[in-house]
Design a protein around this nucleic acid. Structure first.
Lengths: 196, 196
DNA sequence: CTGCGTCTACCTACTAGTAGATAGGGACAG
DNA sequence: CTGTCCCTATCTACTAGTAGGTAGACGCAG
């Protein structure tokens, strides 16, 4: 059969399930029902939940990376890039979806080590990209980081991840926007060491 | 019976389990084994998992609130208060424990509504307390928020929550400290509107 | 006719939750 | 002081349902 792309549909629905419910709280039965096939058929495509989890994270990371490349191509300056970056997290919020890796990070002790490693890679990738953006903003003068760019990158990433979870808990996307706008404003207006 | 405080021991162990594994990924069997009684005896103290979850969140919130009151009493100034606030999150990190409410927020769609409501209350409480601290720091001049204090409070809370999850995913508490120190530094050195 | 995708049917282990028995302690009546 | 009654805490043994995973058969396309 495979008239449409069953494997892709499984990955799509599994991604949505994990991003809303978490890794431990979604099952092959949920996934089979969502896609419209039997549980055993899911196992045909992904023999174990761990294998599915690893692919989920790596596909998510690849797609996220592609979005970062888009930002690199289209952003007018580093400030615009940070706003576009925040918009990536905001996208899923309207349907109750938080960042796949942020969700899995919350239950890191309950997921297979290979899945946890993929999540750590995702965070590392994001910190690296943000460091580059902040550095270029510093050099061009549109950003005024008072601390080393890697420290600001870690902080900005943390803010995005936390803001996503908190805004979703309140079902309140506007608060997410206020939070991210504030985080970006703090990077633009900071002149360095405090004035005498 | 009840020679020692069984109920308290159950709450202690359940808190630890949720903070490391998440809500969905811990079971009454785990909890019973951890405390050293049978599963049915856990049900004697907490009839349903939802009841246990609600009490877990409310007890955590009460204790957190008490810690905030301690900070109010002992902090030398608002900057010190923010450092002490960050230390609250850092405490659990050495044993792999993230904020109970941050963890549950990640799987909010998979927990009973009453539990999710408790988590939302926790976040609200924290935003309110942080707003007060930032306002007093603004008035005394040790903090220089460029945005309204409530916006900074939401941002700072998001940063703490995100930093906890990310630092734990990397098993890297030093990164947590860098992140929180940076977040506080950004509040102290920001002079307001950007310079011409 | 081979092989892929799907199915039915099943497995074992575990889930939350229940039923009913047992043990000990405290209150109180005689 | 003793016997009875109730309450709390625990236990063993169970339920129905779900978890992830497996075996083997069917049908269809190349």
């Amino acid at each position: 059969m495979d008239r449409v792309d069953t494997r892709g549909a499984l990955l799509d629905h599994a991604t949505r399930l994990v991003r809303t419910r978490g890794y431990a709280a979604f099952s092959y039965a949920d996934l089979a029902a969502a896609v419209g096939i039997r549980k055993a058929s899911v196992h045909h495509h992904f023999a174990t939940k761990e294998l599915l989890g690893v692919e989920l994270v790596s596909r998510y990371t690849e797609r996220f990376q592609a979005r970062l490349a888009d930002i690199d191509h289209h952003a007018t300056d580093p400030v615009d890039a940070l706003h576009r970056y925040a918009a990536l997290y905001r996208e899923g919020l309207s349907t109750g979806e938080a960042c796949l890796c942020g969700v899995i990070a919350a239950e890191v002790a309950a997921v297979p080590p290979a899945v946890a490693a993929g999540v750590a890679d995702f965070f590392h990738l994001n910190r690296t990209w943000l460091t580059t953006v902040i550095e270029s903003g510093k050099h061009s003068g549109v950003l005024n980081p008072s601390q080393p760019p890697p420290a600001h990158a870690a902080t900005f990433l943390s803010t995005m991840q936390g803001a996503t979870l908190i805004a979703r808990a309140h079902n309140d996307p506007p608060t997410f926007t206020i939070t991210t706008t504030t985080a970006i404003a703090m990077l633009t207006t900071d002149p360095g060491p405090s004035l005498p």
